[in-house]
């Protein structure tokens, strides 16, 4: 497969201050590991661009965008909540982070690549229409989904969010929209930030049924995640039959991640990536854009991303064969 690799040296310049878990080293670790694994020759390198204002406005309120820009300019240390640390360049870098998904979608639609992974920061899924939350300055996945619909006419978009935290922002943005199916697997809201994503949150009005929350108890294992993914997410996703699959790929449900309490191993992230790729092949002509969200243990993050990329690169025939052998097909 031709897999797009989108990242940018400026992502490292988003300075969140000392001791902040969402730190530049995350991307340094990922990039070093990707290079070391010799993946750069096999990946199609695509340069992200800054997301244009009109595409940001398809998701965020103008007021918020202005607030974000002004906060960065005036040298504020954070916007809205101390979690969402910023520096003077954060506004520009956040636009570049949101723009990676757009460039990836363009390249898929031009036929240059089949799928893509965007190694970006700041992350996006907590960001609401009008305010920042939990390290997120712009909702990257939501901006990409709207862009795919408006610019490329892909009518139905599936956003699968396996970051350990519930993507409150993404859910709220598409809550009453039946054309974007938001599904999240996350640590149960009673125990983990942000406290939303109960199973009864299923979308509103016309969007009822187009939100699927699968809260997982603390210390859930690979097997429990796989069971939930297989029996609850996959059937709903197949029924929705998306034209594009976007993954909010956080790797913080890993057992060694410091922020949450799930017990996944890399094998589970690999397994979910394979199933998701298969789903994109069946429904969306293979169109899949994966966007980095959380993941705060540097070694785990780097290893998981390398493996994620290897799975995206795999030819489908190869994959089928492996599945047959492993008995999972």
């Amino acid at each position: 497969m031709r897999t797009g690799w989108l990242t940018h040296p400026r992502y490292i310049e988003h300075d969140t201050g000392q001791g902040h878990p969402e730190r530049p080293d995350r991307l340094r670790a990922i990039c070093a590991a990707v290079e070391k694994a010799g993946l750069l020759d096999r990946l199609t390198v695509i340069e992200p661009r800054a997301a244009e204002e009109e595409h940001l406005l398809a998701v965020h309120e103008k007021d918020y965008l202005e607030r974000l820009e002004a906060a960065c300019k005036t040298g504020a240390r954070y916007i809205d909540v101390p979690d969402s640390a910023i520096c003077r360049d954060s506004h520009a870098i956040a636009r570049l982070s949101a723009g990676a998904g757009l460039a990836a979608i363009d390249a898929i639609m031009d036929g240059r690549i089949d799928n893509a992974f965007c190694a970006i920061r700041p992350p996006g899924h907590h960001c609401e229409v009008d305010r920042s939350m939990g390290f997120c300055l712009l909702n990257n996945a939501a901006i990409a989904a709207r862009y795919a619909q408006r610019v490329h006419g892909l009518s139905k978009v599936l956003i699968l969010d396996w970051d350990v935290h519930h993507g409150n922002g993404t859910q709220h943005i598409f809550e009453s929209d039946p054309t974007v199916f938001y599904c999240s697997l996350h640590e149960h809201p009673s125990f983990c930030y942000p406290g939303t994503g109960y199973a009864w949150e299923k979308g509103e009005g016309a969007g009822e049924g187009a939100t699927l929350n699968i809260p997982m108890p603390p210390n859930s294992t690979d097997a429990e995640y796989q069971e939930a993914f297989f029996s609850r997410f996959l059937p709903a996703a197949r029924q929705f039959d998306p034209d594009l699959v976007i993954v909010s790929a956080g790797f913080d449900a890993h057992e060694d991640d410091p922020l949450a309490s799930e017990d996944l191993t890399q094998a589970c992230f690999d397994w979910m990536a394979k199933r998701t790729k298969e789903l994109a092949r069946q429904c969306s002509g293979g169109r899949l854009v994966s966007l980095l969200e959380g993941g705060y243990n540097l070694d785990v993050l780097a290893t998981c991303v390398v493996s994620h990329l290897q799975i995206l690169l795999q030819e489908s025939e190869e994959e089928d064969l492996m599945l047959l052998k492993s008995g999972l097909g």
Binding site: G19, P21, V81, P82, D83, H126, M133, G134, F135, H165, Y193, P194, G195, P258, L259
Partner: peptide
């Protein structure tokens, strides 16, 4: 206690 943070570790 409910803390307004994604990172309660500190």
């Amino acid at each position: 206690i409910r803390l307004s943070t994604i990172d309660p570790r500190r």
